[in-house]
Amino acid sequence: MMKTFTGLTALVLAGAVATTTLAQDDAAIKAAVDARQAHMSLFAFNIGLLGGMAKGEIDYDADAASAAAGNLAALARVDQSRYWPQGSSTLDLDAEQTAALPDIWDEGSDIGAKAMALVESTTAMEAAAGNGLDALRGAIGAVGSSCGDCHKAYRQPNN
C-alpha cells in the first residue's frame, strides 16, 4: 500500500515536472519569437526614416539619417542565436505566431551568409547616409535586396 502510494506520488510528481518543463519551453519559444519580431520592427522603424527621405516624404537631414543608418548597422550585428531556437518554425507554431520556415534550421541553410549580406549593406548605408540624399538613395536598394533575399528564402509568404 505504502509502496503503491510512493509510486503514484513519484508518477504524479514526474508528470508535474514534465508539464512544467513543457510550459517553460513554450514560454521560452514565445519569448524568442517575440524578441526576433521586435528586432524586425526596429529594422523597419529605422529604415522608415531613410526610406521616407529617399522618397522625398521626409526632408533630408544628415544627422538623423546617419543615426538611423548607424542603428541599422548595429541591429544587423546583434547576436541573434537565441532568437531562433529549435521548435520555433512554421512546422511547430501557428501561422499567426511565426512565418519562419523550417529551412532556416536545415543543414545547408545559408542564413549566416544572408545575415552577413545585411551587415554589409547596412554598413555601406551607415557610411553613405550622412553624405547627402543622393548617397543615401544609392545605398538603400542594397539594403532592401539583402532584406528581400532572406525573406524570399526563409519567410512564409503571407497570402
Binding site: 529594422f43 532592401g144 535586396s145
Partner: peptide, 26 residues
C-alpha cells in the same frame, strides 16, 4: 510614389519587403 519606391528598393510603405519572385523583379 510608394509604388515607384517599392519597385526600386523592395520596401513596402510599411517597410516590409518584397517576397518570392518579386525579389528578383525588384
Amino acid at each position: 510614389r510608394d509604388i515607384a519606391a517599392y519597385l526600386s528598393t523592395g520596401f513596402t510603405p510599411e517597410y516590409d519587403v518584397a517576397g518570392g519572385h518579386m525579389t528578383e523583379v525588384v
